[in-house]
Write a protein that binds this DNA or RNA. Sequence first.
DNA 1: CCGTATTTTCAGCCTCGTTTCAGCTTGGTT
DNA 2: AACCAAGCTGAAACGAGGCTGAAAATACGG
Lengths: 221, 221
Amino acid sequence: MRLLLVEDDTTLVRTLKKDLQKAGYAVDVADNGIDAQYLGDENIYDIIVLDLGLPQRSGLDVLKNWRTSANTTPVIVLTARDAWHERVDGFKAGADDYLGKPFHIEELLARISALLHRSRQKAGGLLQLDDLTLDEERQILTKADGSSYVLTGTEFRLLRYFLLHPDHILSKSTLMEHVYEFDADKDSNVIEVYVKRLREKVGKERIVTRRGQGYLFKGTA
Amino acid sequence: MRLLLVEDDTTLVRTLKKDLQKAGYAVDVADNGIDAQYLGDENIYDIIVLDLGLPQRSGLDVLKNWRTSANTTPVIVLTARDAWHERVDGFKAGADDYLGKPFHIEELLARISALLHRSRQKAGGLLQLDDLTLDEERQILTKADGSSYVLTGTEFRLLRYFLLHPDHILSKSTLMEHVYEFDADKDSNVIEVYVKRLREKVGKERIVTRRGQGYLFKGTA
DNA sequence: CCGTATTTTCAGCCTCGTTTCAGCTTGGTT
DNA sequence: AACCAAGCTGAAACGAGGCTGAAAATACGG
């Protein structure tokens, strides 16, 4: 974890840096706005601790510049205690958190770890098989060649079931059961119809018919 | 945005609730730990404001329970000012932020907005997506072409939810839950009506209907 | 309390995903 | 090769779900 500490009070920096290093962070320090701007632009930090009162360029400006250049590194702002308007400004400028001075090092560490934890969580929701990618969130099928299709509800449910059970023979009645909530009348060829529609999208060869037994979705293209 | 306010001081609740509603949040209130636990478990809130000093069950316990049951709803904890150990405990229990009492409503609003935006890593106050900019304080929508619209309360809440969840299929019932408080009038087409009104403002193509599943607000115009 | 803005309801219309169906093709069996 | 069952396919019918304009109900500011 690489951390940028932007602070001009040299005695504070000395103790802070030591504590942060002890907690396992690689710490770089900037003691003025210009350096901070430059270092932050590198975009290599996992987190930035930023004091607002800086020589040469205000911390708020630095932060705004980072944000407008699409730098999304989590930033904790240090402010004077009880300067609540400063904090509101900080949030508007894109800060992720702030801490009023003076503070206890434990509190800073807790906030840093909370922020890091926070930015680490991301979404999945992609079902992939060879050249096929099914976006479960959007119900969109994308192929490696770049083409993509918006699926209807039934198409989506059927394809998802195929993707989750590749290389298995799936009978029409099995598919019925899994695509529909309650197995509907057995005398219908809906599955056949939807298999045809899927074939048009995933490629005809992809779904093999096993006459009398069911279908097989090939996993190895 | 649906918000759960957990606070037992009834006079504070009254003013807070009003302010939060004015800012466009659908506010549910719990005034004790048991109710809070139960409501939070519903997992439908976009954000929770939690006072630690509660009758019946400590706020810290409630929070821990939520977290161990994999509920990741952002939580802002309210603590007595300068009780920094309480705050560190709060972070360890899984709080995302805290605020010392007494506080200014603007600061709470700024923190809520920051937390809601955090996944998008945007500066607070303005919610932006491509050519659309939503001023959260004035509830005004501005487009890149210079046109701007004053939104009504419901329009604003719906649009904000869309902007915070672009490219996701949002069902009508989901939208219902997040735009309105408790009630859940099952058969009503209010959402359809407001989608129509929003479409007139953001552009018809922007909101795609996925028949049978919901709506999708396109992020890449 | 009145006038205005906003929200909600409602009914008719339209759209498009689903299902059906009839005719055709394929493959296995004798 | 002839036959038949199983599967394929295009088009059409159906109907749930979505859209819309206006009116009715409700909230709000003065």
